[in-house]
Amino acid sequence: MSKTFFSDDHEYVTVDGDTAPAGVAGMIATVGITDYAQNALGDVVYVELPKVGANISKGDQAGVVESVKSASEVYAPVSGEIVAVNAALEGDPAQVNQDPLGKGWFYKIRIANQNELSALKDESAYAAYTKEL
């Protein structure tokens, strides 16, 4: 069972609950921007991704997403090491709009501190949050 968490900055973090027991380092998560975010941004025309191997801290800039009109920085919702990036977005950034939680993922991160997940929202809390925006 995978579980998805959401940040107030509209990134999602999907972790596979079966890969590692709670509290054990080495959990891999997939990060991208939410459906709300892609909808607010509009048509994505360019995505800049972090480098594989980079160690980033929660809150660091970890990419840029540009729509026709504007550029937005993407911040890391959790700390860790970048283990993969979705290079397909370079040629087809529209996947961010078409399938933000699927083919539109940005990068995979080895989570350094699972406690950071508890600061994120679950799906229903995030839905309630975006409703207020």
């Binding site: 900055d9 709300y36 975010a37 607010a40 941004l41 937005s72 920085e73």
Partner: peptide, 9 residues
């Protein structure tokens, strides 16, 4: 993605 919400006044 702090800019996202700015698109919806």
């Amino acid at each position: 993605m702090p800019n996202a919400a700015h698109h919806i006044p």
